[in-house]
Structures are given as structure tokens and as C-alpha cells.
Simulated scan of single mutants.
Amino acid sequence: MVTLIGKLGMTGLFAGALLIASCSPSGAPHAEPRKEFSIGWSIYAGWMPWPYAQQAGIVKKWGDKYGIRINVVQVNDYVESVNQYTAGKFDGVTVTNMDALTIPAAGGKDTSAIIVGDYSNGNDGILLKGGNSLADIKGRETYLVELSVSHYLLARGLEKAGLKPTDVRTVNTSDADLVSAFSAPDVTAAVTWNPQLSVMKAQPGVTQVFSSADIPGEIVDLLVVDTATLKANPDLGKALAGIWYETVALMQRQDEQGKAARAAMAKLSGSTPQAFDSQLKTTFLYGEPKAAVDAATAPALVTTMTKVRDFSFSKGLFKGAASADAVGMAFPGGKTLGDPQHVTLRFDESFMKLAADGKL
């Protein structure tokens, strides 16, 4: 799931990204202790606990516990929210694993993924009109947000179907415009994520021929925070973990309180309770902090991020880089991928572990 501010705008961002990275010293820059922070979010089923937590007072509760104030801010365009985080407007943002790598990390912004929230288990899909299998996509114009996880899903689908990337021609389309674009009779192939996916799939004659459920665990949804800010303000990480796991526990309850929480999240996302519950069914939520810690420390995460970075490099998302190793990643247990001297994406399980151990 993802959106773009336009191919040229994104390309321009990446063009300067590696320049920033190449000029930055290794390690996170210095940051000061603070009392107020902002977290950006955009609409997606797996991220709706954040605005609901603010609405329900859960954000304030955990902020008060640690003597800080956290502002949870909606941005209507997903990639714009990540761009704003990269530019320093937000201290953290909701983002997929691929976009965390290709936008802030590739741009030299040292970023820590502190909550592994879920993976898409059918929330992203490839749709065709007049076709029953992915093989039928050959030769078609395919509408999607280019250079996003939708593009990654398409590439993985083509690979599994024995097709080449050149067998389709992609048409870059904003996530806000995909539903209307796909309504045109001459547009017969598209890749997107929920809630747009559900709307488009319901059109007459449309078949979903591939989804993220076919590559489980590869499209991961995260909360990331600026590493320097986190280092100077560890209570921010503790508060965010507390907010997340209290809210997720509430939304998973099957009583009236849980139902009311999910209905409120549905309303915040512009959806109905029924549609939102349907989207949750295709979201593999790590509801328990221990499950999230296990996911963050599993060797499978390194395998997934290897696939993601290799795809990203092949698409030119590490502008100016000689290899996919240009952007370093660090994982729990001391494992690194890429350049260990220029690590700018870190999977930090420590706050999830505090939640799992009941030590927040």
C-alpha cells in the first residue's frame, strides 16, 4: 500500500537522496531532549489504531505517563507523509518496509522501525478486466503508483507467472485517482491496496489475479521514528509502544467496546464497519507484542528486506549507487545488510520487547 506525488517529484527526491547519504557521517546525528513530538499517518486499515487512539484519549494517557505530548497528524497523500517525515516535519510516520528504505533511509535520514504492526495478507492486489489469471496481464497498460509497494507486488507477481517486467507498461497514477481511472472502459489492469482495492474489485467483470497473500510477510507495515530523536528521547518510543498495544488489544476484542472501537476506526478511514472488518481480515496484525518481536528478530525479515532492496536498486531508487549495498540496514542481534558504515534503516525491537515483558 502506498501513493506518489508524481514520478518526476519522486525521482527528484531520490536524485538528491544519495547525495545526502554520501555526505552524511555514519551514525545518527545529534538531537536534543524534547517534550513534544509529531507522528504522521495516512489511511490504511493497519494504521487506523493511531488516529483512534488520539480520539479516545489513549495517546494523551501514555504521553502524560512519560511527561510528553504526542500529536498524531493525518496526511491525505501517503508518500507525501513519508516525504514530510524525511524532511523533518514529523518525528515518526506510518510506512511500509519498502518505502522506509527507499525514501528516508536512501535519503540519508537515519530511521528506526520500532513497531512492526502487520503485514499485508491480501490488502494489496492486481486486478484485471476480462482476464482470469495473471498471465492475461501480458501486453496491457497497468495503472498503479509507480516505484511503490504496488510496483513491487506487480514485479513479484510477474516473476511468479514467468513473465518479464517488459511484458506490461505501467502508468503512474496517484492512489487518489486510481478508482476513477479504473472505471474507464479502456483501463483493464491495475494494482492497488485497500480501501481502493475493495472498491475496484467490486466493479463488474473485475477479477483479482494476484495479491499480497501470495507473498506473505513481504509487504510489512511499520511505525518508524527518527533515530537521533529516539536516542535523545527514549520515552517517546515507550509511549508509542504503549499506545499501540493498548489500542490494538481493544480493537481485537469481540465485545461491544471492541466493536465500537473498530466502528470508530472505520469512520476515521471513510469506510463502513463491515468494509473495515473485511480489510482487517486481509491484514495479518501482530496484535501481541511478543509476536511482533518474533517477526522483527526472525531470519525471514532479512530475506524479505534483501528482496525489497534488490528490487528497489533495480528500479533506480538508490540514485547514484553502484550496488544494492549502498544503503545499510541493521537488524536485531547485530545482523547488517548492505554497507555497515552507512546504516540508515534500523529494525529496533527493544520497545516492542518492553511491551511484551510488561515493562512499559
Score class of each variant (00 low, 15 high):
228 A>Q: 06
271 S>R: 06
228 A>N: 10
212 S>P: 10
243 I>G: 06
198 S>C: 02
219 I>D: 15
255 D>F: 02
183 S>P: 00
203 Q>R: 04
230 L>G: 06
253 R>N: 03
257 Q>P: 00
261 A>N: 03
228 A>S: 15
272 T>W: 12
265 M>E: 13
273 P>R: 08
214 D>T: 01
219 I>W: 00
228 A>V: 02
282 T>H: 08
251 M>H: 07
256 E>F: 05
223 L>T: 15
274 Q>E: 15
204 P>F: 02
248 V>Y: 01
288 E>M: 14
291 A>W: 10
231 K>T: 02
204 P>R: 10
182 F>Q: 04
230 L>V: 03
236 L>E: 14
227 T>S: 14
250 L>G: 07
204 P>N: 09
244 W>Q: 13
203 Q>Y: 11
206 V>C: 05
240 L>R: 03
262 R>K: 14
221 D>H: 15
255 D>V: 00
283 T>W: 06
217 G>P: 13
289 P>C: 02
241 A>S: 13
256 E>V: 05
265 M>G: 02
280 L>Y: 04
186 D>S: 11
265 M>I: 05
211 S>P: 03
207 T>E: 07
272 T>S: 15
214 D>P: 00
196 Q>L: 06
282 T>G: 03
235 D>V: 11
194 N>E: 14
190 A>H: 00
183 S>M: 14
249 A>C: 01
218 E>Q: 15
275 A>Y: 03
277 D>N: 15
230 L>P: 01
234 P>V: 08
222 L>E: 10
250 L>Q: 03
244 W>F: 13
200 M>T: 01
237 G>E: 12
198 S>M: 13
278 S>D: 10
205 G>A: 11
222 L>K: 04
235 D>T: 14
286 Y>F: 15
241 A>D: 06
